[in-house]
Design a protein around this nucleic acid. Structure first.
Length: 818
DNA sequence: CATTAGAGTATGAGG
DNA sequence: TCCTCATACTCT
């Protein structure tokens, strides 16, 4: 399964497929290196188990080359896979470095122009340290520099070494489930999985622990929930409260069996003796206790240090870890401290390699990417009677997690995704965590009033529908509606249209919007149904649905970084990306006191209000997908459109050309139609990688089946365009976030991302300054030197502000660039 | 036999 | 034309 996925992912033989003109233009814009690379990889997959094993290609791994037989198969394809893809991190200024430079400039001088210029030689900034951290990690990881001698000198502690409370570390098990011990009865030393509960450490031991922590070569972290499960447990989906955090401190990073296969048997026994596993209890007891106070402070230090440390931190679902720490110990404003957190998240890595696998569990990933058979499966030994076995397994699993992550990192490099991973996806993790922690206020009373109003309106519509249908029926049931429209009234026979819409699988006559639209002159019922559905959608999803997710007058969405095949973000609970933009009109019941028969406009976004003293600022790329298409296709007309007629709306311009009418006379409807036409022309064919190297698997394209091939081609183009837009938007988030996090004065918060729109909450007084910053950064993404990205088309950014998300007014250009 | 949970389908909001 | 999520209905 996965093999085929991968093979398809590589692409298809473009020479054999006849392409549309748009596609050909896109193709010609692609560099020949890309095509060569995908061909080469296509061959590679056929030849052997290349995809099964980590095909590490960096020179730093040279000493282990013999053990990696795939290494030499096709070095060229690995190196040149994409022109900007597989660049060694250390040889290329990364985006965080750029940020570091930016930040320093913004602090030391007032000029914002420097945001464009990468500065690689700055020192001593937080972000710079992140960069160092990764470089350092890379070196360590590949074992080029043997630091063992250093590591051996390190002081370290274990639970049993702790002089004071040698036996107390078993208490965790007692407290939680009555089981006796966390100690593994078997050879704990060999497996190195003693779990040390930091609550029972004395002051001296605590100091020592911090020392070990600070000298650790790598940290592997996971949350532990109240039911004893961890982030690594398969069925962790339930929203169980967090009990504590388990950290594996690795003193050697070269001990991975991946790197040293000779020692790779049975969990690398030889190396684990100096690794430590600690348990950090974070659950607050309801009683006040000075001891707990001290513990709390200690824990806070450990955790925040973890978020800022220089060594690599590995965590499965790192976003949840960051958010949890912030929720527990992050007072207002401390989010800035975690903005630079770089946590290696194997789930994100795996998603980049196979984006169609959107929610794999830890176990899935191990099965998919690690060849080792000695895995202690969390669920295989998990049952209610032996929770302590789970805790024993935690440390083992953390080691496996580390190996898994290293393996995935190698694969990322081999596939040319490493740059994307480091510069785009990893910095996004703390940003999403911070966004989830931020609450958006909702006007609850207005919401409830609207709910009642819409409820009454729906009742009225239902009665009307029953009346004109001549019988009672379930108005939301498409089956019953179909029976009435086509069985009873036989409207399909009266219709002029030849091809009426049908449902996909059952091939029945559809009751969709398109169908009802075409029937609405024949009978009053379709129109009523259309209005009913519109109103019902608003009420159930955006009013009542939103109310259900509200906590203390506000909501915050859950953001999924790995939920889409195209690289976009997705949101849920609520899906803030899908909330109605355009208001709907409904007629009020006439006996509403005062005027009779007045119309009310309902717009869900209006109910999102900024908090006191703050204002929403929305920044959206205008027609970013079309601009990317123009860039990729190189179409002269399209390029001209964006390069010259910058002052006017592009779709209006197109419409006026199309219909040969002056631009002032283009109506909203005309413009919408043009928009549809334009985007439908777009989908023809293409190469499967975004401009930053993101890739997706596609159904195999066979010449026999034209339908499937066409579909795959459309998916391909959509992926390129949509994925590239997503990349740019993520870049914008990262840069703006970094700028704010390192600014001593700015307090703006990122509230949401609606694909090509970023929504911020800004202190009223900071609007001009912040608006200028946002505009500068977003427009600068036309060229990103670190990623060798240079769009031929300027990016246009629209800014608007307002206290309500539904009522935003454009920000004056003069203000934005002041 | 009645009730309920889950899978599958259809629809429509966003971009 | 693509890819998301939420909802409601229908059937098992």
């Amino acid at each position: 399964m996965k093999m085929e996925n991968y093979e398809a992912c590589v692409g298809f033989d473009l020479c054999e497929t006849p392409l549309s003109t748009v596609a050909q233009k896109i193709m010609s814009a692609m560099r020949s290196g890309d095509l060569m690379a995908s061909r080469n990889e296509g061959e590679r997959t056929k030849t052997s188990e290349v995809t099964k094993k980590p095909s590490v290609h960096f020179s730093v791994l040279a000493e282990h080359e013999k053990t990696q037989p795939l290494e030499t198969k096709n070095p060229k394809s690995l190196i040149n896979q994409t022109p900007r893809g597989s660049v060694e991190l250390s040889s290329q200024p990364s985006i965080t470095k750029l940020s570091a430079g930016q930040v320093q400039n913004s602090i030391s001088s007032s000029g914002l122009s420097s945001y464009l210029i990468p500065q690689c030689d700055q020192e001593a900034s937080v972000l710079q340290n992140r960069e160092h951290k990764r470089k350092h990690f890379l070196k360590e990881n590949i074992g080029k520099e043997d630091k063992d001698s250093l590591n051996l000198k390190r002081k370290y502690i274990t639970c049993s070494n702790s002089p004071e409370k040698a036996s107390k570390h078993t208490a965790l098990g007692k407290e939680t489930d009555g089981t006796e011990s966390w100690q593994n009865s078997e050879d704990t030393r060999a497996l190195g999985k003693q779990l040390c509960d930091v609550r029972y450490l004395g002051d001296l031991a605590k100091v020592q622990l911090m020392d070990v922590l600070k000298q650790a070569a790598a940290l592997v972290v996971t949350l532990m929930y109240k039911d004893g499960s961890t982030q690594l447990s398969a069925k962790q989906a339930l929203t169980c409260p967090v009990k504590g955090i388990v950290v594996l401190l690795k003193s050697h990073v070269g001990s991975s069996p991946l790197i040293l296969p000779a020692h790779g048997g049975a969990l690398g026994k030889d190396f684990t003796s100096t690794d430590h596993c600690i348990y950090i209890h974070t659950e607050q007891s309801p009683f006040w206790d000075p001891k707990q106070e001290a513990h709390s402070l200690f824990v806070r230090n450990i955790l925040f240090w973890t978020l800022r440390c220089k060594c690599p931190v590995v965590c499965f679902n790192a976003k949840d870890f960051v958010r949890t720490v912030l929720q527990l110990y992050g007072e207002d404003g401390s989010w800035k401290h975690v903005a630079g957190f770089v946590g290696l998240d194997p789930r994100v890595a795996a998603w980049l390699i196979d984006p169609s696998d959107t929610a794999p569990s830890f176990e899935d990933l191990v099965a998919k990417h690690l060849e080792k058979s000695i895995i202690v499966k969390p669920s295989s030994t998990f049952n209610d009677a032996s929770i302590n076995i789970v805790s024993q397994n935690v440390c083992v699993n953390l080691k496996i997690l580390y190996d898994l992550t290293m393996d995935l990192c190698s694969k990322l490099k081999a596939y040319g995704l490493w740059q994307l991973f480091c510069t785009l996806e990893l910095p996004l993790i703390p940003i999403l965590a911070v966004m989830e922690n931020h609450k958006i206020s909702i006007d609850k009373e207005e919401m409830e009033r609207t709910s009642a109003l819409l409820g009454a309106h729906l009742k009225k519509l239902e009665q009307e529908a029953h009346f004109v249908a001549g019988e009672q029926f379930l108005i939301m049931s498409n089956n019953q509606l179909r029976e009435i429209l086509f069985g009873k009234l036989k409207l399909h026979l009266l219709s002029q249209r030849k091809h009426l819409p049908r449902t996909g699988l059952q091939n029945q006559l559809s009751t969709s919007e398109a169908m009802l639209n075409s029937l609405q002159d024949l009978h009053p019922l379709p129109k009523i149904i259309l209005e009913y559905r519109q109103v019902h959608k608003i009420k159930s999803t955006f009013i009542d649905g939103l109310l259900a997710y509200m906590k203390k007058g506000s909501i915050s969405s859950t953001w999924n970084q790995t939920g889409t095949v195209t690289g976009r973000l997705s949101a849920k609970h609520p899906n803030i990306q899908g909330i109605s933009k355009h208001p709907i009109q409904i007629s009020r019941p006439r006996n509403f006191k005062g005027k009779e028969e007045e119309t009310a406009t309902i717009s869900p976004r209006t109910l999102f209000v900024s908090s006191e003293g703050y204002t929403f600022l929305a920044a959206d790329f205008s027609q970013i997908e079309l601009r990317i298409l123009a860039h990729l296709s190189g179409d002269p007309e399209l390029l001209k459109l964006f390069q010259e007629s910058e002052r006017d709306d592009v779709f209006s311009t197109l419409t006026s050309q199309w219909k040969d009418i002056p631009i002032e006379r283009v109506t909203h409807m005309d413009r919408e139609q043009t928009k549809k036409v334009v985007y439908s022309v777009v989908y023809g064919a293409g190469y499967v990688a975004s401009i930053l190297g993101r890739r997706r698997p596609l159904p195999r394209i066979c010449a026999q089946n034209q339908q499937l091939r066409a579909q795959a081609e459309r998916q391909a183009v959509n992926f390129v365009v949509q994925g590239s837009a997503a990349d740019l938007c993520k870049l914008a988030m990262i840069r703006i976030f970094a700028a704010v996090a390192t600014s001593p004065t700015l307090t703006a918060r990122l509230v949401a991302q609606i694909h090509d729109e970023l929504l911020f909450e800004v202190e009223d007084t900071q609007i001009p300054e912040f608006a200028a910053l946002v505009r500068r950064i977003m427009e600068s993404l036309q060229q990103v030197q670190t990623l060798e990205l240079q769009l031929q088309v300027p990016l246009k950014v629209n800014l608007s502000i307002g206290r309500s998300w539904g009522h935003l007014t454009p920000l004056q250009e003069t203000l934005g660039s002041a």
